[in-house]
Structure formats: C-alpha cells, structure tokens
C-alpha cells in the first residue's frame, strides 16, 4: 500500500488558512478535531456504504470493529486505503491497526498525529 505521497498544500496556502482560522478562532484544537471527526464519519458512511445512518448517529467512542455497525476485517482494509488516500497516513501493521481502528476517536487521534495534510 505504500506509495509516493505528494504534499498538496503550499506554504502560502497554509499561512492563509491559519490566518483565516485565527481570525475566526477556528484553530482551537477541539474544533479541528471535531471537523476531522465529522469528516471521518462522512467518509466511513461513504466508503462502507452505511446508507441507513447519519454521521450524527455514529458514536466516536463506541467499538468500531465488530460493534453495532457490523464492521469487519474487509471494511478495515477499505478504511486503511481511504486513510492513506485522503490523509496520507499509512497503516500496514496489524498491531497498530487493531489499536487505531478500535474506535473512531482512536482513528481520529492517530490521523491527527500522523497526517502530513493536517495542521499540527
């Protein structure tokens, strides 16, 4: 799964974004986290075709794999692809995978800490 990931944001764009967010007080870590969580919920629904629920109905602290959503090993692998494609984070270690996909909150944390795409 490892491929050459190209960093999309230029420095100018980054500074502009930060300035804008600063002005609107949107750089608070909790707000960035919530945006990421919401974004992930939407992607989860899309990638796993969970057509019968809305992002609001997903509890980020509930068990992800083997939980009520019926997510299994194939879904996890599909999410691994999505995470690398959308956030540039590679998860190809089974032990890391098990921790990272335990809950949506754990996944959000891991992406936030490891993604070259997001503000840190």
């Amino acid at each position: 799964m490892a491929g050459n990931y190209s960093f999309r944001y230029t420095l100018d764009n980054y500074i502009n974004l930060l300035t804008f967010c600063f002005q609107l007080n949107l750089t608070h870590p909790k707000i960035i986290m919530d945006e990421l969580t919401n974004d992930l919920k939407k992607k989860l629904i899309e990638v796993l075709n969970l057509t019968d629920i809305t992002p609001e109905e997903i509890n980020e602290n509930e068990q992800l794999v083997g939980g009520d959503l019926g997510i299994d090993s194939i879904d996890v692998l599909e999410m691994v692809v999505m995470v690398e494609k959308e956030y540039g984070v590679v998860i190809n270690n089974k032990d890391i995978g098990e921790k990272v996909f335990s809950t949506l909150a754990a996944l959000t944390d891991y992406i936030r800490e490891n993604s070259p795409k997001l503000a840190s």
Partner: peptide, 13 residues
C-alpha cells in the same frame, strides 16, 4: 485512476 496506489479491497472481494 489512482496510478495503482489505491486498489479497493471491497471491490476485489
């Protein structure tokens, strides 16, 4: 379209 980087496990299975 992903230049072979992102094959889909769900579609393969």
């Amino acid at each position: 379209s992903s230049d072979e980087k992102f094959p889909s496990p769900i579609d393969f299975v």
